[in-house]
Amino acid sequence: MTLLRVEGLVVRHGLLTAVREVDLAVAPGEVVALVGANGAGKSTLLHAVAGSLPAAQGRVLLGGEDVTTMPAHQRVRAGISLVPEGRRLFPSLSVLENLLVGVPGGSRAAGPATSGLPRGGWDVDRVLDAFPVLARLRDRPAGLLSGGEQQATAIGRALVADPALLLLDEVSLGLSPAAVDVVYASLEAVLAGGVAVVLVEQDIERALRTATRIVCLLEGRVTRDVARRDADRAEITRAYFGTGTEVPS
């Protein structure tokens, strides 16, 4: 079964085409790392899947249902949550309020195809258990948190919607190495919970250690798509920098 299927996706920023005819499939429970240089289209691809950037061409399917034209806030209910680069917390809300905003109100809006998707069973209580730091800081305004605390809040805020697919955009960017370790340690609980994850990570070592599959992007196109056990570190590095011959995937 395929959880997410992206077909021939093209995304533009004005005149600039950032994602060019990308095909991608993600199965339930998979952890896919998107690897590529700056400007390769990784973030753009995540935002198009989350619905905050429109697709110029192609389709995005979640659990077989076409969500290409579904607005971002409805895709959250359908099962796609994005942790944006730079955390983007609501600074005037407390940590707990940031989490509560992510709790979907009312019933799940999307069709039956997405309501039966495998999920991790996350809610606010489980997030506070899995991220003890958040329980301690629950009443602190999000604007006053350290970078690592902010990142934990941002991941928690995405999780409380109980997504079937979690998109992580550069979760280690701007954090101290120690804080990155803490964030990835707490992510273990998420990965063990069966939620499918697509993550963008600049640190190739970290990506290779966490992911079950590696997808390389170069100038908006997929140049490699391999399972981790088949991934050759040197090959990935070459793909990352866009050097060497291109091998069609």
């Binding site: 989350a50 209910r77 994005l82 809300l93 905003v101």
Partner: peptide, 17 residues
Amino acid sequence: RRVRATADDPGTAALVG
């Protein structure tokens, strides 16, 4: 909470539903 979140950052508010 939704109102204050939207006031802070409407784009991110959409990303959390």
